[in-house]
Design a protein around this nucleic acid. Sequence first.
DNA 1: AATAAATTGAACCAAACGGTTGACAATTAA
DNA 2: TTAATTGTCAACCGTTTGGTTCAATTTATT
Lengths: 123, 123
Amino acid sequence: MIILNHMVEHSAHLDAVFHALSDPTRRAMLGHLAERECTIGELATPFSMSFAGASKHVRVLERAGLLKRDVRGRIHQCRLQAERLAEAQAWMRRYEHFWNEKLDTLESLLREEDKSKAKKVEE
Amino acid sequence: MIILNHMVEHSAHLDAVFHALSDPTRRAMLGHLAERECTIGELATPFSMSFAGASKHVRVLERAGLLKRDVRGRIHQCRLQAERLAEAQAWMRRYEHFWNEKLDTLESLLREEDKSKAKKVEE
DNA sequence: AATAAATTGAACCAAACGGTTGACAATTAA
DNA sequence: TTAATTGTCAACCGTTTGGTTCAATTTATT
């Protein structure tokens, strides 16, 4: 039950997460955060973007729950928080069989082939 | 190589796909399309939304490559096209180990436990 | 104590969003 | 032929977006 509550599709979460991911700058920021913790400044510089601009992006990621901020003095250390990505992926999983269809078919064909081979060996 | 080209992160695609998914109405539309093909009207009615409104949402999904339209006379049959969702999920997979970390730890702990049990049995 | 650095806040901008309405085009049914 | 159905287009509306600049605030450095 606990695990189910964890998995509940909270639509507002998904809105925020997918929106956060829809911007290439923010996706790149997540990419950096996947490798190490970053300050706002470190997140800003690769994009030759103002601090204020980066700050806004970080807030979007934060509100989506994709990033946790740790204020140490004047420095804001940001680290990735990926649980919400898991929710998003869980939502997507419902559609997995659509793009796996062709693979699935191929797979079951191969399995059939194996079976008939096995039969022949038995004979 | 072919499979790599298929997997390339085409950023513009991801922008469009994630943006399309960031709206609850559009996600619900995809939900309907997952069960059966729908006309624009059928997609519109559950949300008590104008045809024109639904039409716009459908176009967003179409441009994101999540939906294919089949015009039969005055009727536009829409069906799900999930390949682009696969791209999005592929992008997310890079972050999987972050939310699996705890599970991974638990798993390896259990494995350790099993090993030591096995040892005791050996002794 | 004065200065430099890291960050936010507020005000602004043009563009895009999600939605509506009303006119229009095309297809189908009476 | 007329009328109804299905859908798009264009114009509009208020809100949000991604970005800027500049002033203010807090913390470090010298």
